[in-house]
Write a protein that binds this DNA or RNA. Structure first.
Lengths: 183, 183, 183, 183
DNA sequence: CATGAATGAGGCTTCATTCAT
DNA sequence: AATGAATGAAGCCTCATTCAT
């Protein structure tokens, strides 16, 4: 409620840190040293900690932004008329829009981290809704669940990043998955 | 060629180290401490370094070994009669046989380390042969190349590891990919 | 003397900082972060530094204040009629009144910081007077000096804090010291 | 059982680290930086961690040694004939023998650390036995328990250290406590 | 040759102090 | 004058690699 707006310089720094973190995490995953992020943002390490209490929190914040944007897009899809088209359009733009990179792999790692479960869950819910609507409409195979879908996507996007695929290869490769999802 | 043959005990140690490394890397990825591998192999850390100049080299050697084994299986498939069946059988055993785990994900990271390019190429060639035979036989979609296939598999195996999928989920998820590969 | 009088708001801030520091130091010792004190005082960290050049100086000032208050109590005791009763009453209220906590332990550490030597000396003098009057009155053993007494008290209060003694244990334990002081 | 003896150089280093730790902790308490201890021992920080997994463990080891020696002395006292004499003799030698310094204060801090509870408990038990035997023999006041005694001793020894008391003052001051303990 | 002990750089985090707003 | 953001030096700990035994 009473969150007072940050001072101009503080907000600028916070944004620079977040931007640097997003870029670095997207490129190399959570293993990027925090000092490296601070250096890229042009601030001291202490400044990073002023805005984000732990490295994990910074990572979460970097992800949340990305995740929230994706959630927004998924919900736009839910407003549309054709469930199957909305589902596949969303998946395509996740790829082409650069929505997922190396960072989300770490974010959704082994046990499912805690801090960013909220936003991640919202995204999952939105995609899950897209999925089940498409399944009910007979556009997507009915034998998979949202977890399965997310795993598949995750693996694909990691591979995209690891192999540095250009858009042509990405499209060709993603087509395999999309076709596998169809009935 | 000019490699002087190792003494019996030295060779035994080398093999124990390699076996321990394979097991450890497969289970936890490249982040396993080298001391842990030495401990599992029942040797000192120095012994590991006698046989492998760096941890990276050990990792590469462990991968090469696995890759070589997979290459052998792929070639067995090439000897069979039904190209489509051989192709899908090979893919299935890669998964179910635990042929690729977390380690290969690390191994085929960003730049593609040079040390194990040779063996990887051989495996690629073997799988590529399986693929193109299956494509010529009309069992697999013709619009993808070996690189695309490998990327897809890589992504899948990474997801398997990251999400700790049980065999039920693995099967369900892999089915999407296999079906996507069919015509 | 040449201290220009502070503006009203500045003086109020100084006092709030001092009060917060006393409370915080008493509760947790010198290890309380300065930011925490500033927060409790409802001011910025910079304001603390406007009034006290270093954390050490703030700590000293906080101690001085407490010490001065204790000195006042000791002098009240000196005004009384029964030297022995006054002596033991003062000691008891040091304990029960919570006059000394973790902070004084830190304050009187190894080298005895110089800043608060003056006020400490005044307190020592007052307690010393209480002591020697009680000794002359035959109520306290004659073979100890004020330094000895202060050391004993210091050790006791530290133990009270470290062990988190409740009042029952504190009383039982303090009785040993009080009885040891009697003839 | 099968604890193999350490290599000569390792044992020497372990002992140097332990000695440095004991000296440093005794002098300044647990707050001494671990790097400082490593430096004093003439080893790298990593070497300290080879022998002691955490700073707390090193601290515990430093204390344990000291505590075990004290326990041994207490048990010698239990073998004697005169309970009162044994009790007071033990307390005196704790002081004069330099058995307790700044470090034990930290060791027996607030909640009672866990790692060294075993040895500390043994010492407590031994002193407790000395105490209750002396109480049954009518040599020590019956209204205090072992915890009270330990708190008193702890506070005293801390004060001894903080004030840098020479043996004359120490004796004079300790007499107050010893006399307070007598009936 | 093998061992495993030692090294030391580097990672995360805290906090006294300074300084732009 | 006040604010609170930024700094950067430590502090604890891990682990790849080297080296004495």
């Amino acid at each position: 409620m009473t969150e007072r707006p940050l001072r101009a310089d503080a907000r600028r720094n916070r944004e620079r840190v977040l931007a640097a973190a997003q870029e670095a995490f997207a490129a190399e995953g959570i293993s990027v040293p925090l000092d490296e992020i601070a250096r890229r943002a042009g601030v001291g390490a202490g400044t990073v900690y002023r805005h984000f209490p732990t490295k994990e929190a910074l990572f979460a914040a970097a992800i949340v932004d990305r995740v929230d944007r994706m959630t927004g897009r998924a919900r736009e899809g839910l407003a549309g008329a054709d469930p199957g088209a909305a589902f596949f359009a969303f998946l395509r733009q996740m790829d082409s829009g650069g929505g997922v990179k190396r960072d989300l792999a770490d974010a959704l790692g082994p046990q499912g981290a805690h801090t960013y479960e909220g936003p991640t869950r919202e995204l999952q819910a939105a995609i899950g809704e897209l999925l089940s609507r498409a399944q009910r409409a007979g556009a997507v195979r009915p034998d998979i669940g949202i977890d399965d879908l997310l795993s598949i996507l995750k693996g694909f996007f990691i591979a995209v990043h690891m192999d540095g695929m250009d858009s042509a290869r990405r499209e060709r490769t993603f087509a395999v998955i999309l076709d596998g999802l169809r009935i």
